[in-house]
Nucleic acid binder design. Structure first.
Length: 423
RNA sequence: GGAGAGAUGGCCGAGUGGUCGAAGGCGCACGCCUGGAAAGUGUGUAACCGCCAAAAGUGGUUCAUGGGUUCGAAUCCCAUUCUCUCCGCCA
């Protein structure tokens, strides 16, 4: 969430920047500032009251010690009223604090100053594109047909044992999945990331820390008996590794990579978008997460973007990079690049990665801070990106590389798959 | 799941009603020592929220969490959570 001190300092600037996300923050900001004023006033009153009580308690102690029980007992009387008002004030303060927090959490992250306004994905800016669109034969088919033809993925079997959106990978399909996971992990480790195997379920505090709660709880699977959430992305556990920590400046940058299965309820999705591998309830993803000094986070964002492009290049997939407009950005992001690959048989672009700088938005929620060399404590910046999400990569690999003879595996992957063609 | 023990600062660990934000040690930072380092030695070393234009200063809060007893709680009581040990079950 946004830092209260910044909001207090220049509320107008925040309101203007949030307008880029098509979010009218005026009334909420006013409410926050009003609540904050009241909170500070209440605390001042309470603090004064407690200071008085503390003083009296100390005096009573001294009286008892020096044998003046009478004076001590007399003083006790005077505390009755103080205690009563202290209790009232404390309740009021607690109420105000939780109200304030509840309001603050509703404010999205203000976008970076370079973000352009916009309402729909069509307003996103294409900042880069690379690769040649394959020209497929007349007989080319979408990946779900290829998956069935070569017995790679069984959607029906997934329906039977779990439900829609939980495919079963088989044979070379399963092997291709494993190859991609290893390929992505090896590349990340070579680029200096530390491999992490995180839990696939997280507690409430973690889901809150990265911003899934309180707004998007309907998007996560929830194991209610134990109050745990299935992770929608490895970002959640891997970023929360650093929750409630004060890092040292020399710890930066922290670079972690994790493979995990991801679980998303995708409530409300339907139609052609969800066909085949386009949108699943469970899918595999390799995620990179960085924690960085605020002065360097945008530099790091560009590095991460370039890193992801490098992976797509190695896989020989035509891709483009979008810089998201204000309206298409997520609640928690300050700047997001989406990478899309061309899916030749579907004739559409598929999002396979989203690389974002959250600045201090997540860090503030999870109290992830660092101590600078001069001893000051500040919030760190968090960033993450898919590198990469598997299903749509698989979809476009299958579609783009289909030939009469079978599906050709890109060179970079062959040492991982152990085969050159699927036929 | 059953029985028991426990939760204190970055870490270890003392503290059973006031002088305790908390001994001691480790770690860390800076200095001395040294040709340099190690050892030794000295000093310092929590976070959060207020007040103040800000720094300085100062008030408050925090010894797992939430409540209670008390003029006063790390210390006593209750609940919750978590950890450990033993038993059971088990990849």
């Amino acid at each position: 969430m946004i830092q209260l001190s910044i909001l207090r300092n220049d509320p107008q600037a925040i309101i203007e920047r949030l307008a880029l996300k098509n979010y009218n923050a005026k009334s909420l900001v006013d409410e926050i500032l009003k609540c904050d004023d009241e909170r500070r006033f209440t605390q001042k009153t309470l603090d004064d009251n407690l200071a008085e009580s503390n003083k009296i308690a100390k005096t009573i102690g001294e009286f008892f010690k020096s044998g003046k029980a009478q004076e001590a007992n007399a003083l006790k009387e005077t505390t009755v009223e103080l205690k009563k008002t202290a209790k009232d004030l404390e309740e009021k303060l607690n109420g105000l604090e939780s109200t304030l927090n509840g309001l603050l959490v509703q404010l999205p992250n203000p976008p970076h100053s370079s973000i352009k306004p916009g309402k729909t994905p069509e307003d996103n800016e294409i900042v880069y594109s690379e690769g040649k669109m394959p020209e497929l034969a007349e007989s080319a088919v979408p990946h779900w047909d290829l998956a069935a033809r070569y017995n790679l993925i069984d959607f029906e079997l997934g329906n039977k044992i779990t439900g829609a959106g939980f495919p079963v990978y088989k044979g070379k399909g399963a092997r291709l999945q494993r190859a991609l996971i290893n390929f992505f992990l090896d590349n990340a480790v070579a680029a200096g990331f530390t491999e992490i195997q995180p839990p696939l379920m997280v507690n409430e505090a973690s889901a809150y820390g990265t911003g899934q709660l309180p707004d998007k709880d309907g998007q996560m699977y929830h194991a209610q008996i134990d109050n745990l959430y299935l992770i929608p992305t490895a970002e959640v556990p891997v970023t929360n590794l650093y929750r409630d920590m004060i890092l040292k400046e020399k710890d930066f940058p922290i670079k972690n990579v994790a493979y995990s299965a991801c679980f998303r309820r995708e409530a409300g999705s339907y139609g052609k978008d969800v066909r085949g591998l386009n949108r699943l309830h469970q899918f595999d993803k390799v995620e990179i997460v960085q924690i960085q000094h605020p002065d360097k986070s945008y530099e790091t964002l560009e590095e991460m973007r370039e890193y992801v492009c490098g992976l797509l290049r190695k896989l020989e997939l035509p891709f483009r990079v979008l810089k998201l407009c204000g309206g298409d950005m997520s609640f928690t992001s300050a700047l997001t690049y989406d990478m899309e690959v061309w899916s030749a048989a579907q004739q559409r672009w598929l999002e396979v990665s989203s690389v974002s700088n959250f600045e201090s938005y997540q860090a503030n929620r999870m109290k992830l801070r660092y101590k600078s060399d001069d001893g000051k404590i500040n919030l760190a910046h968090t960033l993450n990106g898919s590198a990469l999400a598997l299903p749509r990569i698989v979809a476009s690999l299958l579609e783009n590389n289909q030939t009469e003879a079978g599906i050709v595996i890109p060179k970079a992957l062959i040492s991982y798959t152990g085969f050159e063609i699927i036929n």
